[in-house]
Amino acid sequence: MAKKTKRILKIVLGVIVFLTLPTLVFFGFVYFKYNEDLPTGIQGEQADALATKMLESLDYEAYKNTNYLEWTFKKRHHYEWQKDKNICTVFWKDYKVELQLNNPSESKAFIHSFRVHDQQAQELIDQATIYFNNDSFWLVAPYKVFDKDTERRLVTTKDGEQALLITYTSGGSTPGDSYLWLLKENGKPKSFRMWVDILPIGGLEASWSNWTKTESGAQLPTFHKMLLFGLEMDNIKGTE
Rank of each mutant, 00 (worst) to 15 (best):
W92P: 02
W92V: 00
Y95S: 01
V97D: 02
V97T: 05
L99R: 01
L101H: 04
N102D: 15
N102S: 09
N103V: 11
P104Y: 07
S105G: 06
E106Y: 03
F110K: 00
F110S: 01
I111Q: 01
I111E: 00
H112I: 06
F114P: 00
R115Y: 06
R115A: 10
R115P: 02
V116A: 05
H117Q: 07
D118R: 04
Q119K: 15
Q119P: 06
Q120G: 10
Q120S: 12
A121I: 01
L124Y: 02
D126P: 04
Q127M: 13
A128T: 00
T129Q: 14
I130A: 06
N133Y: 03
F137L: 14
F137N: 12
F137G: 07
W138V: 08
W138F: 15
L139C: 02
L139I: 12
V140F: 03
P142T: 07
F146T: 11
F146R: 13
F146C: 11
D147S: 14
K148F: 08
V155H: 05
T156Q: 06
T157H: 12
D159Y: 04
D159E: 15
E161R: 14
Q162F: 09
Q162L: 12
I166K: 09
T167W: 09
T167C: 10
T167L: 07
Y168P: 02
S170A: 15
G171W: 09
G172S: 12
G172P: 01
T174H: 06
D177C: 09
S178M: 12
S178V: 04
L180G: 08
W181L: 07
L182R: 06
E185L: 01
N186K: 14
N186F: 10
G187A: 07
P189A: 05
P189D: 03
F192N: 13
W195F: 12
W195D: 03
W195Y: 06
W195Q: 08
V196S: 09
L199K: 04
L199Q: 15
P200V: 02
P200M: 01
L204T: 09
S207N: 02
S209T: 15
W211D: 11
K213W: 07
K213L: 13
T214S: 08
T214P: 05
E215S: 15
